[in-house]
Design a protein around this nucleic acid. Sequence first.
DNA 1: TCTCGTGTTTCTTG
DNA 2: TCAAGAAACACGAG
Length: 262
Amino acid sequence: MPELAEVEYFRKRWNPGLGNRITEVESHPKARVFRGSHPKDLVATLTGSRLLASEAHGKQMLFRFDGATLGVHLGMTGELRCEGPKFVAGKHDHLVLWQKSRALVFSDPRLFGRLLFQPGAGDPDWWIDRAPGVLSKEFSLSAMAAFLQRRRRTAIKSILLMQETFPGVGNWMADEILWQARIDPATPGGKIEDVAGLRKTTRSVCRKALKIIGTDWSDPPTSWLFSHRWKEGGYCPRCGLELARDTIGGRTTCWCAHCQKG
DNA sequence: TCTCGTGTTTCTTG
DNA sequence: TCAAGAAACACGAG
């Protein structure tokens, strides 16, 4: 499920553990989610350490402990949750950080998610080098226009999914942005006339999604494409005509052929 | 039984 | 060398 807003929601689910010590670490060290890091070091270093803070950026999260950082990417089916002291890990619970009165759990059935552990006090390079957030000041019109020009032949739907420039935008958000901006998802990047308008809509969808979903997993209003896009046979909440569905850039894409023009 | 998927990386093709 | 598309990863839901 996780795009920017869902990631923020999941990040906060470990908040009850802030400031508290990890008494025990339970992990499935051979799980694919540990690729690229060393789960043995993770268990050794995190046991006895304290969870200090967390941040989300796009689809990435960083949890700071005294003496280490833990990066979490949820992939397609990852989730974080907080369980009580009697919790028993299931087969998809690949990491459990035990505290005195709770368990902080990472689970992911499909194993597309990833845990990046780094010992030491400093932030990892991949966190320092991240792309400017869509809602930040650095997400400028000129940078976005240059990027669309560089990808001038690629469908705008595919461009919006590129994390190097639109961190946190995922499949449903890309569809929502293009529907709200009334742009046909197959439009090549170089043919976007109102780049400023697209930028504004991108920021607005991200801001509102964070507020609505990021807070308590509420659904966006029914006036959005969001609740109409999931299955075949939905209708455009703006004009009432049947929505189109097709694969663009390898991903299921839903749009209104009447409202959205190239 | 079969298809599909709210993501990323790697391979292949142009 | 670069960009774009396809395949691969792995599992549960419908």
